[in-house]
Amino acid sequence: MASIAVYSVKGGVGKTTLSVNLAWCASAISRRKTLLWDLDASNGSGFLLGIDPRKKRSADSMFDEGADPEKLIQATAYGGLDLLPADESIRSLDRQLDKLGKKKRLAKLAEALGKNYDRIIFDCPPVLNELSAQVMRAADLVIVPLPPSPLSARAFEVVVEEVRGIGKGHPPILPVLSMLDLRRSLHKAAREANPTWPAIPLASAVEQCASLRQPVGAFAPRSPAARAIAQLWTAIERKLASK
């Protein structure tokens, strides 16, 4: 099992859309049993997959001692792809983790879930707190979506500082240019400055994910956006294999 965190300290960068599409690639292209773990209280991943969280049990309950997170997992419409949904209870999880005093609680839960999954993808909240620190300790790779802008560059520096703060053995970081529009001079300059970074174009197909509530590869498999996301997933698998 390998775990991948899609993370940014800045909202509105396409983090959740990328998480959903990478999870779809993991299951549909690589044929790996995949769990998408939504840790953002907005439940954006669930929405994009057409799934609403069950109300019987809150998302933070799985972190309690003796809890069984598998009871919260929901199947999606896509074979090999399951969702561990979020809800508003995630907002108080930081205090709960701090009270537990266990720095690797999330990593241990992921390890247990990994018995049934080949890939776990974390859709992380755009915050710096104990939850994000626990995700960094659990992840084998951190994906950072970056729309071309000075603010995004600064946000990337913050993420790098946080990941490296874990100490030796921290996961590698893969920056991704998101919402790239080469007709814009700022975007073109960002691409020229980082020619080796994977890039996801600004495309209507990506925007349609929210209205259709489907991954791009499911409804527009031949689109430039679907090809770019698939290429990114290939790069991710290669990076995991080289560890």
Rank of each mutant, 00 (worst) to 15 (best):
S149D: 04
R54M: 02
L151N: 03
M62G: 01
D98G: 14
P85L: 09
A133D: 11
S45D: 00
P198N: 03
A210H: 10
T34A: 05
G66I: 12
L202N: 09
A86K: 13
V216N: 01
P125F: 10
V142K: 02
S45I: 06
R95N: 13
P171Y: 05
S185W: 08
N129S: 14
R105A: 15
Q231T: 10
V127T: 15
E192R: 14
R184W: 11
M1Q: 09
F219H: 14
S152G: 14
R238C: 06
K188T: 09
S149L: 00
S19D: 01
D118P: 01
A228Q: 04
C25T: 01
A225Y: 04
A205W: 11
K108W: 13
T196F: 11
I166V: 13
G217A: 04
R222N: 13
V13Y: 00
E157D: 07
A193M: 11
G169A: 03
M136I: 14
A2C: 06
S149A: 13
Q96I: 12
N194C: 06
V13Q: 08
V206R: 00
L113G: 07
S42T: 14
V6Q: 02
A189N: 08
P172V: 12
R54E: 10
G46K: 03
R227L: 07
R31V: 01
L106M: 07
K56T: 14
K10D: 05
P150C: 08
K104A: 14
S242Y: 04
I120V: 12
S178N: 14
L83A: 02
A226H: 10
I200T: 05
G80K: 00
L109W: 04
T234D: 15
S178R: 03
R32Q: 15
L83W: 12
V142D: 07
E111S: 09
P195A: 11
V13C: 09
I51P: 03
D140S: 09
S178K: 07
T16S: 11
R222G: 10
L72P: 04
I236W: 02
L131S: 01
A139F: 10
K71F: 12
I200L: 09
S178P: 06
R238L: 15
I4C: 04
L39V: 02
V163P: 04
A110L: 02
F63H: 06
A107P: 08
S61G: 03
W233K: 00
L36F: 10
N129E: 11
S92A: 15
A112Y: 01
R227P: 07
A59K: 05
Q214R: 12
G66C: 05
D118R: 00
R119L: 12
S3N: 08
T76G: 05
N194R: 12
G101D: 04
V158L: 15
A153F: 12
K56A: 15
A133Y: 13
G169I: 05
P175F: 07
K99F: 09
R91G: 08
A218D: 12
A138S: 13
G11D: 09
D98I: 15
C25D: 08
I143C: 08
S58P: 00
L93I: 14
R191V: 01
R191A: 13
